[in-house]
Design a protein around this nucleic acid. Structure first.
Lengths: 307, 307
DNA sequence: AGATTTGTATTGATTTTATCAATACCAGCC
DNA sequence: GGCTGGTATTGATAAAATCAATACAAATCT
């Protein structure tokens, strides 16, 4: 027995005509005739009485056909349930966001999103990348917003935007007078860094080593927040690199790097089990609407890895 | 999607191990793995999370598996319902019996059968063969007991026994002194016949024509019942042929024919739609138990057609 | 009664699919 | 590092569904 045979007898019962039933099933009449006969042989029961014109189901066939109809309905329901599961965005979701993004990105879109989708709610936690990844895997989180690539087979990344990495410097520093700063011109002394664990620290370090430099500290001050770093710079303790959302561009201490500008790739991250495609789509769209247009990737940028 | 794929995911959910699940499904592990993957691709959803050991269903997979379980249950129910329909003998059945059998055969087995099977009941109607056949076809009857063969594609015959056709003669006739009468020795004058429509009349006529004779009547008396014919013979109005159940053999007016003895084949008749195999079996058995042993066919008889 | 139409079954070739055996891969463990 | 238990991949083979063509069968129409 197979599902198509069930479809064939149901179609044949509806049309009482092999040719029409076959058309509905997108097969030829001999195919349908054969398969119906085969099912009858397997069940060892006549389903249709072919002696009349048009043919009609036998009494036993009636019950078989009705059960077949029911089975097909359930199969359809199985298919649909998957689709619905993917399409519905209603629900409670646990969202992890890295600390260098959360305070700057979330306010830009969350309220509007929640108002637009009253059936959807989030529990947001600020976590570092590794923690987000591990909690996605152990199903303690549903969604993450973080910097990719992660190179983790279990985690699916959906890139959203490319956020420029800027120089944040004080009036005292030589870079202050430049309109755009070359990465190569950076001396890595007095560079203020986030503490270990932040992916953004990894990116800054990667930028340094790609320049063949090593960070040398006179003052070894490592902060857990970009706000602290900015305050340090503002008070002439050196300079730092900072993602654009954390400062904006109108800040007088901010300088863009010369092209190709270093950027970080910000992505939605989910376990491969996560199937709410529509939610991912809606979230991504909402975020894209909430960030500056130039965050969409262009050719003159270089994606900096953090790991 | 096919039924086996559903079986595979259910088995895999139960064993959480491809090898064991494959064994239960009587296929090899690669087959099961492939089919599960194929279903996942078709539904476009991960059903199992293979990153853990042992693997486990994904949240979406759980619902898919449960629905699959349900579908398989219904499929089993379909199969079973056909079997049950065939095996159950309970019910109301409409039985047609030809007049030359009904009063002699039914009393021999019906009461015992009904007592043995309290859930089974019959509505019996005495009808001639053609009427039984046509009512079986139009579903006004479920069962018939009649003389075969019918040569009707829509009707299924289940032969039960072979009833000898006897000579019923009076003391005045020359046959009376013979122990066994040769068919050839019959002169067909003064042969009393049933009226048109009775299959037994057809058989007698066939016997005559097969002997190259034609029935010649001085008295053209045609009766609707064998009882009338017997009474006529008893009063020396001629002789007649008569099936054995209608007289018994101890009657002094009865003579067997010489071998090969003419017999009529008595059968159960049903429409090909009729699937209650067990009922047919039980009925046939009950009838066989209720008739003389020599009614079972032996080589020294000739089956006489009625049509 | 033949001719035509309508509906179903049969046949042989072809394509698709499921299945297998063998083996590669892969992670965890002594 | 080799071993083990579990899964995936591959290429060959067997089984099936399907098709086009056509035969057959019954009903309808001249």
């Amino acid at each position: 027995m197979n599902i198509q045979q069930l479809e064939y007898i149901v179609a044949l019962d509806e049309h009482r005509n092999h040719v029409k039933a076959a058309q509905q099933c997108h097969v030829t009449q001999p195919t349908l005739s054969m398969m119906v006969k085969k099912l009858e042989e397997e069940l060892d029961v006549m389903i249709f009485d072919r002696s009349t014109l048009p043919l009609k189901p036998t009494p036993a066939g009636e019950t078989v056909i009705n059960k077949a109809r029911n089975i097909l309905k359930e199969i359809k329901s199985l298919r649909d349930s998957v689709k619905i599961e993917k399409d519905t965005i209603e629900g409670e979701f646990r969202l992890g966001v890295i600390p260098t993004l959360a305070p700057y990105l979330l306010p830009r879109f969350l309220n509007e999103f929640l108002q637009k989708h009253p059936g959807t709610s989030f529990t947001v936690t600020e976590l570092q990348t590794q923690e987000i990844v591990s909690q996605l895997k152990s199903n303690k989180l549903d969604l993450g917003i973080l910097v990719s690539p992660l190179d983790d087979k279990e985690i699916r990344e959906i890139p959203i935007f490319y956020e420029p990495i800027l120089l944040y410097t004080s009036e005292k520093m030589k870079y202050y007078k430049q309109d755009r700063v070359s990465l190569k011109s950076l001396t890595y002394d007095n560079l203020l860094l986030l503490e270990e664990g932040h992916c953004f620290r990894g990116q800054v370090e990667n930028l340094c080593t790609s320049m063949g430099r090593k960070v040398v500290h006179q003052l070894n001050y490592q902060s857990g927040s970009l706000e602290t770093l900015k305050a340090m710079v503002d008070n002439d303790y050196g300079y730092t690199l900072i993602p654009e959302l954390a400062v904006g561009t109108k800040n007088k201490n901010v300088r863009h790097f010369t092209s190709p500008e270093p950027v970080r790739e910000v992505s939605l991250a989910v376990h491969h089990n996560f199937i709410k495609e529509r939610l991912l789509q809606k979230l991504r769209d909402a975020i894209l609407k909430a960030i500056p247009a130039h965050f969409k990737k262009n050719e003159k940028v270089v994606r900096v890895r953090w790991n």
